[in-house]
Design a protein around this nucleic acid. Structure first.
Length: 869
DNA sequence: CGACTATACTCAGTCTGGAGGTC
DNA sequence: CGACCTCCAGACTGAGTATAGTC
């Protein structure tokens, strides 16, 4: 195969992407279907024989995906692919050279690589691909050099673009009365100081309780600062000594009271506790309609439910006769639900003191599991509780949702612990599956879950040294990428036009990952939700709108929708079009020759340890860094915090971190805008009152000043007035009742209804007043000694309220489906926040909760204000 | 295959803004 | 009237959890 290398055509120095994409513009629809516009196909005519073949392929009943799966096998296996002699399996370049050589250089990029959707033989690809780096033909190198200059261009971009796209952030809430703001700030600061004191107090107290004194200690001299220890964090051995107490099992199942039973076809039935427990899983979540009404959930649950019933001797009615549970629809879990719901309610209504006591008890019982000794240092353990049995709630359309997640037995659990340490005792009468002393692992215990066969690990908490170290390493890795990013971008820019399909796909994928923060996109199994990332993007996930717009629409991790309409490099646009070329169709992968491991392997060539996910970290932190650097250190603390959060939000949008819109959101928004409208109505009334006092104001101020806002039409006003009347009525009634309650409590007798009616007279007057206003179109001045000046002052106040409320509303709307936390916890280098905090003199508590301060201790303590990402 | 990070959701607890009361 | 205090529903936060990714 090495001979084919010579056949690689030269990358032309003029091979710049055609700034004017193919005439496909004229034909947006067809391009979305991955078809090529006439102009392009004419050029394709040059490679006619392939087109013919493509039609053959089309008739091949197995289609692309089959070939594809074969491809992935080939990839690993061999170079002896029988197909490899096919003409179209030759490196594209070869054909291209014969057929397209003399074409207008501007267009030769349009030559399809995707040729009839058939993969190139692994052999040729590999051979050429591998050699291309070291054995790059001279000409290539030259052209590469030329292009060095033009490379820089895109360098910054990703978030800037997104940020711009993200709705312009509302102006700072600065409008708020300054005085108030300042006061509040001070109060806040005080409280945070207080809080800190309380924290250290608790810490000290806590320390007295546990045996290892030296461990956490913020102010102790022997405090260990691993981030100052150069020897830390490299190598694979994670610990030398390790002691811990194992895991906490969930409480055993408590059978339901005798009167609480599943009803089948109206008949209460008795089940073995093991089956009853499963019925309880379902019954207790009846309020989660989202799950319970999902047919897949029902089906999976019911299958498992029937199984366990069968295994445990069946269901019986009150006479002991066997009842066969056959149909899900005949099962009535309501009684069970009511029982559990009442239990929850009871728990919720427990007096605070009892709740506290309960928690204290639990903490005490679990205290020994909370910490471990890791190389002699006390470290917090993360999830030491074994996951309780339940119904599996897969996200999105997960085929396994509803299956019973079974109780984990000690016999399934592997313990990892130091050789010298005492092995944590399994529950009486039980054994561990295995006891290991794996010093290369950071886990303390591990088991396999029955739904997907996934491994579950007990590891240390986020604030532990190991986790801190790997977090640190993650961000250092991302920073390291800074040194390579230019080269990488330059390379993919160039390889967008590579003649080899794989290479072109690789370059395009890296482009997408870099520019749009996509995830790698591993292959997924049949029995998982159908979600995708970059490498697994499907035909239907990408639509192309000429000239250079790409619309992504797919379900990503956690089945969260990724929808974005973006401008891409013209060459990327062309490539995607090629990758989507027929016979590819819905369901087929866009990057059919790419796997995440191949992609990552490619990235490793640039930088050790570089993988797709590093780009996310890098771009998130880099974006944050830029945004923070661009800020001015002015304004109140509140304003600075808001500015920080706005930057944070942009990063979150970049990473597509979403949250579900809260149930009451639309309602809350509606309420807010009604209130704003109400304020404007009030404003108008005040103006009319001014007019009432001084009719000639209309001339002075101009008639426009006294106009009602357009949306305050008569109908709305009537409704609003009714609302105000009703509101007032309710208030008075409530007050009346409350007063009466008080009287009863004080031993006095209740007021009569007549008193209430008397009080309600105000409302009647209000109503009359409104009616009068509506008729006359005038508003009588209210209040004691009203003056125009006083009214003016009131209007100004209303204006401010309207402003602040509008800002709040806008904020709320903008934030409704953006989750800031995830990027703060995982993507934004905490040192950036620390620098910001120091430079702008905002207490770190404003940005990091206690948990985050502990997690990011290494950042808080190691960085001064000159640090840069 | 195994181990690790990343993610959204849940629920309980905390905070807050505004109404009403008091001075 | 207005500054301040209290109370409480509802909003928001954070810890914890379990699921879903990556490599």
């Amino acid at each position: 195969m090495s001979s084919s290398e010579d056949d690689v055509p030269l990358v032309r120095a003029n091979g710049r992407a055609n700034p004017t994409p193919p005439s496909a513009k004229s034909n947006g629809q067809s391009s979305t279907n991955g078809e090529l516009d006439p102009g392009v196909s004419v050029r394709f005519g040059a490679v006619q024989n392939e087109d013919v073949k493509m039609e053959d392929a089309d008739e091949d009943a197995h289609g692309v995906s089959k070939r594809k799966s074969r491809a992935s096998i080939d990839q690993k296996k061999s170079y002896a692919e029988p197909d490899s002699s096919d003409e179209d399996d030759q490196p594209l370049s070869k054909r291209r050279r014969t057929s397209v050589k003399h074409e207008d250089p501007e267009t030769d990029d349009d030559v399809p690589l995707a040729l009839n959707g058939r993969k190139l033989p692994k052999a040729s690809e590999t051979a050429i691909g591998e050699s291309s780096d070291s054995d790059m033909p001279i000409e290539r190198k030259l052209s590469a050099q030329k292009k060095k200059i033009e490379a820089k261009a895109k360098a910054e971009a990703p978030a800037a673009r997104k940020a711009a796209a993200a709705k312009k952030d509302t102006k700072p809430a600065a409008a708020k009365k300054q005085a108030n703001g300042v006061k509040k700030e001070q109060a806040d600061d005080k409280s945070s100081v207080k809080k800190m004191k309380a924290d250290t107090g608790a810490l000290k107290k806590g320390r007295g309780k546990v045996k290892a004194e030296s461990a956490e200690a913020e102010d102790e001299e022997d405090e260990y600062r691993w981030w100052d220890d150069p020897a830390k964090g490299d190598g694979t051995k994670k610990w030398t000594t390790l002691e811990h107490n194992g895991v906490v099992f969930p409480p055993p199942y408590e059978p339901l009271p005798k009167n609480v039973k599943l009803k089948y076809d109206g008949v209460p039935v008795t089940l073995h506790p093991d089956a009853e427990e499963v019925a309880g899983f379902f019954g207790s979540m009846l309020n989660s309609t989202h799950n319970v009404e999902n047919p897949v959930f029902q089906k999976n649950f019911f299958r498992d439910f029937k199984d366990i019933i069968k295994k445990t001797g069946g269901a019986k009615d009150s006479q002991g006769n066997k009842v066969e549970i056959k149909e899900f629809t005949k099962c009535d879990f309501k009684t069970i639900f009511e029982f559990y719901d009442a239990q929850r309610e009871e728990k919720r209504n427990l007096p605070a003191a009892e709740k506290k006591a309960l928690k204290a008890k639990r903490d005490e019982d679990e205290a020994i599991y909370q910490y471990c000794m890791w190389d002699g240092r006390k470290q917090k353990v993360g999830n030491f509780r074994v996951e309780p049995p339940s119904l599996f709630r897969g996200r999105g359309e997960h085929p396994k949702t509803g299956h019973v997640k079974t109780r984990v037995q000690p016999e399934q659990i592997t313990i990892n612990v130091g050789k010298e340490a005492t092995v944590p005792p399994p529950p009486p009468g039980h054994n561990w599956k295995e006891v290991k002393h794996d010093q290369e692992g950071t886990w303390l215990a591990m088991w396999q879950e029955n739904i997907n066969g996934n491994y579950k690990y007990v590891m240390l908490a986020a604030n532990s040294d190991v986790k801190g170290q790997s977090d640190f390493k993650k961000f250092e890795k991302a920073r390291e990428l800074k040194e390579y990013i230019d080269k990488i971008r330059k390379d993919y820019q160039k390889n967008l036009k590579n003649d080899l399909m794989v290479e072109r796909q690789k370059a395009t994928a890296v482009y997408l990952i870099d520019q749009f923060a996509l995830r790698a996109g591993n292959e997924k199994g049949e029995d998982e939700a159908e979600t995708v990332g970059c490498c697994s993007l499907k035909y239907e996930n990408i639509s192309l709108k000429p000239p250079c717009t790409v619309v992504f629409d797919f379900l990503g991790k956690d089945s969260i929708r990724f929808y974005d309409e973006v401008q891409v490099d013209p060459q990327v646009f062309k490539n995607l079009k090629i990758f989507k070329k027929a016979p590819k169709k819905n369901g087929d992968e866009v990057f059919d020759r790419l796997t995440t491991s191949a992609l990552n392997k490619h990235l490793q060539n640039y930088m050790p340890g570089l993988t797709a996910k590093v780009f996310r970290t890098y771009n998130a932190s880099f974006t944050m860094s830029n945004l923070l650097q661009g800020m001015k250190a002015t304004g109140t603390i509140i304003e600075k915090v808001k500015a920080y959060n706005d930057a944070n939000r942009k990063v979150a949008i970049l990473c597509n971190h979403k949250r579900t819109v809260t149930a009451g959101h639309a309602n809350a928004m509606e309420k807010m805008s009604e209130r704003i409208k109400g304020l404007r109505y009030q404003k108008w009334r005040l103006k009319m009152q001014m007019l009432n006092l001084e009719p000639n104001l209309k001339k002075k101020k101009g008639a426009a000043f006294f106009e009602r806002d357009e949306d305050l039409d008569k109908e709305w006003i009537k409704e609003h007035q009714a609302f105000l009347v009703e509101e007032q009525t309710q208030k008075i009634k409530k007050k009346f009742e409350k007063d009466n309650e008080k009287r009863v409590a004080d031993g006095e007798k209740e007021m009569k209804v007549s008193e209430l009616n008397e009080r309600l007279e105000v409302v009647g007057e209000m109503k009359k007043k409104f009616e009068k206003e509506n008729k006359s179109g005038k508003v009588e001045a209210e209040g004691r000694g009203p003056t125009v000046e006083k009214l003016e002052a009131q209007i100004t106040k209303l204006d401010q309220r309207v402003d602040t409320m509008s800002v709040q509303a806008q904020d709320k709307e903008d934030n409704k489906e953006v989750a800031l936390g995830t990027s703060k916890i995982n993507y934004i280098d905490p040192r950036l926040t620390v620098v910001f905090s120091k430079k702008f003199n905002v207490p770190i508590e404003r940005f990091f909760s206690k948990a985050l301060r502990e997690k990011f201790e290494w950042a808080i303590k190691s960085v001064d204000e000159d640090w840069e990402f």
